[in-house]
Amino acid sequence: MIDHGQADVAADPDAHGHVDVDTVQLSAELVEAASVASHDIAEYALWLGDDSLVLAQHLGWWISRAPELEEDIALGNIALDLIGHARSLLHYAGAESGRTEDDLAYWRDEPEWRSAHLFEQPNGDFAHTIARQFIAAHYLFELYSALMNSTDATLAAIAAKAVKEVDYHRDHSIQWVLRLAQGTEESRRRMITGLSDLWPFLEELFVDEPLIDRLEGIAVRPSSLRALVEAAMSPVLAEAELGVPRGFISSGGGRRGDHSENLGPLLAELQVLARAHPGATW
């Protein structure tokens, strides 16, 4: 017989990125705005907030559908982080025009969204989701690392919080790229397909729109991230023995309101209930 009252023998759910649901905690996670954003800064915050919200909306679908329970939790956790980033960014973006985060999330039509096409791409199979995560998390990590130095205190604070979480998202995607690329023949084939299908959307992330010229020192210049993102992904691809996909490059346009065909249905689902009850609170 062993001692009674010892430490629990059951597995520790913390190991899987477990979170307690707590509204206080969820609210405390949001970064408060230090000031009201100018019109241009608000527009830039929309770029970033929309990317995160659209990606979170896709990832939330996986819960109860993932290949194993640990992945239900991990992908849910990532989605939850991204919703947190989106809420902080949309809250900041909306203050300038007197709109709430929900006004922006639920009552803007497709042309008013600013998400890049990468984030709009469908989940596909698990390898596609991982390929999208791999590119997105590398981009977001470099973006937020640089944005921490923004002269805009609110953007810098949001970035400082987000970068730690995105670092975990990046690690999660790297582990899966390695597993899938070097697991079985089937998983390797699927990983190569997933990466090839998502790679065309990388380019748009590095395009400097005119807005960026007006936000010197405040926004991160997208073109400045290309070398950093590529340098970070390159050793992983090498270890996974994956070549850099060649082929199509999507012309993008998300920052100007030109979206892929995936955004419309995604917004229809996201907004359907809120729009059925104008003026209601939840």
Binding site: V19, D20, I63, G76, L80, E101, Y106, E269, L270, V272
Partner: peptide, 22 residues
């Protein structure tokens, strides 16, 4: 989760379902 009517509700619901997996 995909249709929750506010971002706050979406976050809470997501965390709750994740709790259940845990």
């Amino acid at each position: 989760i995909t249709r929750a009517p506010s971002l706050k509700r979406k976050a809470i619901l997501l965390a709750k379902v994740q709790d259940e997996a845990g």
